[in-house]
Design a protein around this nucleic acid. Structure first.
Lengths: 174, 174
DNA sequence: GCCTAAGTTCAATTTTTATTGAAACATGTC
DNA sequence: GACATGTTTCAATAAAAATTGAACTTAGGC
């Protein structure tokens, strides 16, 4: 399993980025990276978010790439992820083609969204699966103890499924 | 980032295990593996837990290894993890050396514990870090907007830190 | 106190996940 | 509608995480 505290990937960090970032940008980056790790979000995405979070003005693609020293591919995918999860907004000035990005007002909402999108589908998929497991166990003559356990699990799943959507109203996107 | 739905690792599954498991053991395994994935717990640990969860009687080391077709190392580490997180208990009959394992009564408590142990240390570490970030931003003359964001983040962190321990009373182990 | 069964450790390996970068694609401009 | 700029895609590669297995440790029986 993941080590409790992630060691800094020295090779990559030393290779190019980080000297373009101020100490507090770096420290904020580390904070978001750690939180992202818990939520299963890749490092590069967290770094982009942190950068935008600490920026006085909205930043464009090339500025992000330059500041973080990451590839176009990563920046593109990272921005896509953040957009899809409604964690950033593009600010367009007219006559300017380039998009510029800034964080959405509510970080909390974004995080709840993130969790929900991971958990809800899993719970939905599980409902019929757990029913099948319970049926199978009954037919196979499982002990009352096991049947009890499985029944509790199924109930728990159902409860979670009805509680979860209440955490926040569904996002515009679905 | 992780693909939304994990494809079954055909090679490994086909190689040895699974034909020792009943269909409902397999399906329950899949369920726990999926949940574990969200929580950042490795597959092998989830499989062990699922096996014990669906078992009529407590199982020993060798039975687990045989049923799941995994290495001694994985079984040992998996059991250690589950023990450390108070998700399983050993049932000892006297005169018998071998330990036998069964799930603890409360799965819900176990899961909360699991989350707490990931999140709490991160939050604690973050408190001073965020303060430093905020100070740095102030000294560097950041815009009021950014200072506002960072202040909110710090408050949010502090709130999470005081709310979290209330989710469940602390476990005996710490 | 020695022997053996039971379990742990950890370096090597495999598997999974993230990142890169070059080619393809889009979109606005003239 | 050709061009240039900005962005995405995706196969190849690098990095991180999980798993294995053989050497090592520990605990109990004698």
């Amino acid at each position: 399993m993941k080590p409790p505290v992630k060691k800094t990937p020295v090779a990559r960090r030393g290779r190019r980025d980080s000297h373009r970032l101020t100490p507090h940008e770096l420290e904020l980056g580390a904070f978001f990276v750690q939180m992202a790790g818990i939520l299963g979000v890749p490092r590069s995405v967290a770094q982009i978010y942190a950068l935008l979070y600490a920026a006085d003005v909205a930043l464009d693609f090339d500025q992000i790439q330059a500041k973080l020293g990451m590839s176009k591919g990563s920046v593109s995918q990272g921005l896509k992820f953040l957009r899809d999860h409604e964690m950033i907004l593009s600010v367009k000035a007219k006559g300017v083609r380039r998009e510029r990005w800034e964080p959405t007002p509510s970080l909390a909402a974004s995080m709840v969204n993130l969790v929900r999108r991971q958990v809800l589908p899993a719970l939905e998929q599980s409902t019929p699966a757990l029913q099948r497991v319970l049926d199978g166990a009954q037919k196979a003559g499982a002990s009352p103890e096991v049947l009890e356990r499985l029944t509790r699990l199924k109930r728990w799943n159902a409860r979670a499924l009805e509680l979860f959507p209440l955490m926040l109203p569904p996002s515009p996107g679905g």
